[in-house]
Design a binder for these strands. Sequence first.
DNA 1: AGCTCCCGCCAGCCT
DNA 2: AGGCTGGCGGGAGCT
Length: 328
Amino acid sequence: MSSSLHTEDSQWKNPSIYSRKDKSLGLLCSNFLKLCDREGVDSTIGLDNAADQLGVERRRIYDIVNILESIGVIACNHSDVKEKGEGKTSGSHKIDNRKEKSLMILAQNFVKLFHCSDVDLISLDKAASALLGDVHDPMAMKTKTRRLYDIANVFVSMNLIEKIRSPDNGKPVFRWIAWKENPRSGSAVAAKSDDSMRRTFGEEITNIVPKRCRDDSSSDLMSNGQVKRLKVAKDDELKDKKQMSAEQLNERGTKDFVFGPFGPSSLPRPGVSGKENLKQIQNWEDLASKYHPQYQNKAASELFAHYVEAWESWQVEAANELHKQHEH
DNA sequence: AGCTCCCGCCAGCCT
DNA sequence: AGGCTGGCGGGAGCT
């Protein structure tokens, strides 16, 4: 570790004053993003390299990468791996099961909870039970909550969400604080109430509410005010690899993707067959791997625009379904 | 005492 | 067979 990517905290210079927070995923995440900031746009960072520079094990980098990948901030060089998940192999069941439980999917679903439910404040146990669906296993709840803590800490460090005390019971809850405008129109949406704002997004990812839950080291995603798309690879993979140009990707546009339900993936979507439901989930999961625009603010805005779009169309569909049922 | 979440074991997959 | 990835839960630190 040549230079200090860590905070200026004296703890780093004096190991005897160890604090658990020094090793938090959130802090690691902001350090990781700072590391990314040192690289050029669309750069590729080696796992070992990142782990070395941040003074952590590879294992922790996997955690960060998966969470960041879930919101499209970074991309991984594993397209070759992903191709295999198309369900032909005998072990696809296991793979699907594993994938379903992955940090990445969990993080995506966690984000969906904020944008596609009517609640403003979400506690982690509420989120866990919502994401677990019909499962009522206490152990599964505990595990899911632990993972949500990991994800929440990373999101807090990126100022996507903030942690506050619930006015009702004083328990910690999380609230989405990024994107206050509609990304599709690019114009500000008149603020009626907190509630009416929930499903509208916009603003640059870095143009965030200046509230801080943690120290300042976790504030800026990128010092230049933009978030770069970054690739993470094994160090020996750091050779020339063809990647789609931003133009190509933009041409694809958003219409190629059909988005699924906005509950946990385990919950069936009303009015849609299981097969179709699965296909749409698959499409949604493909988004992160297919769509890699150059700058995250655009990527994230469009990603969340998809949430809104799909949610709205689902609501229309559900309303129609309900209407039909009443007619009969 | 309950909450939070770091740490590293180890299963499953890949090369 | 060995390496890589990442789900998982023990248990220690924090409040």
